[in-house]
Amino acid sequence: MSLTGENHGGGGPDDLIDQRLVARTRAGEAGAWQELLARHQDRLYGVCVRMVGPTPRGRELATDLAQDAFVKIIQGLHTFDGQAKVSTWMIRVTMNVVLSWQRGQRLRQHASLDAPVAGHPGGAGGGPGSGSETRSHAELLPDREPTADRRVQSLELRATVAEALSQVEPEQRALLVLRDVRGLDYAQIAHVVGVPVGTIKSRLFRARINLREAFENLTKPSTTKPSTTKPDLTKPPANKP
């Protein structure tokens, strides 16, 4: 199901229009690339905003990132091979720009803060992701119960989800944004991220758990400072009855 207008059917009318615009741009027709970008700029900009955060500063940053992404899209149109939908390919380029920028930001941080926690499932690479179809949930799911009184029900708490999303690793955040915010299917996400569908599922499940961890950290009583470090799910269950 598409929530935000993404066309999931292969070769749908929207994609046909996009393909024609790509062809016209390649043929050197003036203004065709603008028409193409104009059709997608809001969605791509939305991806950037959601990846960097919807704050005023985040929107400025998202504008810069979208600009860079659009330039790369224009300059890379000749490399588009038609194996994916144009819109998916454009999201891929945009997401790569955003993630590259975020990786660069991380490199600028202190090494100790940047180093992945041993055994933490939220690492950038997502751990051993492929072949997850046979993996038991027990290997991924924390052994504790989730905090039942912190369910995302009210509008206010849903706003907190956005904040929690910003605290998830960028690569995992990308999966959540693509899947839930933008409504892409697994095949499209696999194309955007460049990994097999099985790996996408595995990483997405981890991402959901990490989002939950971040959410509960944010909604803890104010006497406890929200943890900014990665949760260590290898710890013994804390709330297990």
Partner: peptide, 21 residues
């Protein structure tokens, strides 16, 4: 609870639909 989280994320998508570049 993960289902609820997903719904929360989807609500962000609905909000983003009105986002304009």
């Amino acid at each position: 609870i993960l289902t609820d989280d997903r719904k929360g994320l989807q609500s962000l998508g609905s909000a983003d639909a009105s986002l304009r570049a």
